[in-house]
Design a protein around this nucleic acid. Sequence first.
DNA 1: GATGAATGAGGATTCATTCAT
DNA 2: CATGAATGAATCCTCATTCAT
Lengths: 231, 231, 231, 231
Amino acid sequence: MSLSKLFCKKDPSSAVKRERRKEARPGELLDAALNLFVEKGFAATRAEEVAARAGVSKGTLFLYFQSKEELLKAVVRENISGRFKEWNDEFANFEGSTVDMLTYCMNIWWERVGATKASGITKLMMSEATNFPDIAAFYQQEVIEPGQSLIRRILQRGMDRDEFRKLDLDYAVFAVIAPMIFLMLAKHSSGVCARASVTLDPKKYIASQLEAILYGFSTNPEHTASPKEKK
Amino acid sequence: MSLSKLFCKKDPSSAVKRERRKEARPGELLDAALNLFVEKGFAATRAEEVAARAGVSKGTLFLYFQSKEELLKAVVRENISGRFKEWNDEFANFEGSTVDMLTYCMNIWWERVGATKASGITKLMMSEATNFPDIAAFYQQEVIEPGQSLIRRILQRGMDRDEFRKLDLDYAVFAVIAPMIFLMLAKHSSGVCARASVTLDPKKYIASQLEAILYGFSTNPEHTASPKEKK
Amino acid sequence: MSLSKLFCKKDPSSAVKRERRKEARPGELLDAALNLFVEKGFAATRAEEVAARAGVSKGTLFLYFQSKEELLKAVVRENISGRFKEWNDEFANFEGSTVDMLTYCMNIWWERVGATKASGITKLMMSEATNFPDIAAFYQQEVIEPGQSLIRRILQRGMDRDEFRKLDLDYAVFAVIAPMIFLMLAKHSSGVCARASVTLDPKKYIASQLEAILYGFSTNPEHTASPKEKK
Amino acid sequence: MSLSKLFCKKDPSSAVKRERRKEARPGELLDAALNLFVEKGFAATRAEEVAARAGVSKGTLFLYFQSKEELLKAVVRENISGRFKEWNDEFANFEGSTVDMLTYCMNIWWERVGATKASGITKLMMSEATNFPDIAAFYQQEVIEPGQSLIRRILQRGMDRDEFRKLDLDYAVFAVIAPMIFLMLAKHSSGVCARASVTLDPKKYIASQLEAILYGFSTNPEHTASPKEKK
DNA sequence: GATGAATGAGGATTCATTCAT
DNA sequence: CATGAATGAATCCTCATTCAT
């Protein structure tokens, strides 16, 4: 932004460093906040800790965010940013089998969301949703709806092309979503979801879940109709 | 005071009330605490609120529980009584197909845990595990381990009897567990897991997941070998 | 008081025991309170502890004493009881040297007060006087005044009989009183007054102090004028 | 903001006030705490009162002291700085009679400790020793031991130089210490030690006690044998 | 009278937030 | 803009006191 930037890309001088930092301040605070909120929970994280981890003073935090609650909201907003628009396009033009499509979808999701800090948001929302209804609604609208909708369209495509058998989409989507959520929680609440969480290989896990979802555990190849529910 | 006293040693009215209440108190408090902790989170719940919901005063809470933290521990312990022991026996002697066994397992789990307040514990643990490592360890040992172990044995049985194809158990168990966890979270973090959570029919959801897990979405009957992993 | 007492001095039956206890209740409570107040201080002693040490329930304590403060006042009153009236008589008729008189006075004081629980009262007053001005005034009037007055009369007698040199009584009395107070405090606040408090032999201590005091007070022919104060 | 800023880098007015106050705070708080603890006792003093007397708010107190208990510890430490080290040196090189030495010792003690607020510490310790064993141990080590040891050395010197008769030092030290303690308690527990406490002139009192003590300790040619102890 | 369950005022402590510097 | 000293509302917890049994 400043002229110095145009001429001097990697100026180690303090002047530029300070300037860059000044602009980066809010971002660093959001980063620190996300990490701490996910690690310790919203209530257990003190504002001063966030400031400290971002390398600024307590007062500075409140210079950029009206309150701790606003900080949380900003953290969520910042990390959600409707990525689904671009994804929708990406998948709208997908060519190839729906099996490949679903496989690609879950893997790309892991790379772009699950493996990043953004996955912490899910845990955060899970814990704080009831305390922040407006932000939960925002999350619902920005993440849950488009995500579910995307999966739904993929499954519908599979059915339309006779790759998948007849599915009740309202429930089938969760077969895809549940493993994703599980993976994020396993990552952030290690020990509570799965003992083996530490050694759980996400890629292998996704492959394993896809296999289960797509082909099932059963060796019985004759299954076309739904099995009768047993009460 | 009342005539009834003359005739009836154990008047169930006011005379007995105080004593009966004394015995009932801890349970009432644990109930109130579980509900509030799940609803609002541990930190956001004031001790006084718990007391109020249990119909007693602040002081009474501390008459039965040393501290708010001890109350949380008691809530977890109370709701995770060794249910797994009986289940293990129940399933050790199971006769019938492993498909039926797994179906029965998930349904019975829903009835006995998922549908009860105990399911809130999972959400609670998810949020507070980092702040209470000892409780998390307890939960891990009393719930995660036995649960995973039970599922594992069922899947192994399926493989032994050639009902299931060859599975990597370390990952396959999660195909069963993830939907359960998802169901509990959907129930307690309204809107964050699934928009349709309110209308999500657990029994139908379980049936749907079982169908997916057991038989897969794919109409392709030739799938016997694992699909190639994609790096 | 009851008839049973007249016929049966040591009836071990529960009826009498309970009856005796009932009458003794207040005394047992005062005893327990004195001990605990002295040991731990007034504020740090819980009413329930007092009740427990007296072998009754919390409620019973408040049956006999309006409040914890009233209990303290009762403890002080109970243990002060103008013993000085009888002592005045005892010393009014004393025959023998004033040296013997003072020696006897301090030793008898130790036996009858210093060595008993009553000595704890002094420590109690020291700590709580400012919080209970009315009781401090009572103590002042019932203990300090008569005590000082008694010592004063003894010293005056010594001067009248030319056993002691001319003393400024306003200050000389404290030479006698200070060691007594010191002894009581050493007994109840061990470690704060004197490291050796545990092994401090009160009788030897009194003898030692008397020796110091007396042969300074004594009509030493070579010491008649006060030594000059040096600024 | 003010013009003075333009001309004067270190304006001692408002600009510096905040910083100066920061440094002064702990001292102001310790002062307030000492006074209140001595006046009302530790338990009866509310943290807020201490803050108020120091002219700050409740929260500020806890900015400087971890807890009320730590505040008490700091008060004791602050007021008992190793004064004894300098005194030891001062007395090691003393020239003159031991009578003068002891006289000087008690008078200097009064000026430097007895007359200052530090004397309140003794009363404080007396009341709270049992509740704060570690502070009591600290006090014991920092005050009682060195004090007793110093007195002991003075008396020994008197004996070595044949100014004093043979003394049992274990007990004789208390003849010097008891009046000091008495004087401090008289000062802080008005009315409980001595009715005349208000008008008691400490200098005169010390002179009076010295006279009593010295000419009992003094090598009175007519008093060589101890008087018989009476059992 | 005796009990001990229940109460709630009171006090220590924390921490988000403000604001003078 | 940045700081961090100061604030005080909020909350946990204690314990004297009450009162139904």
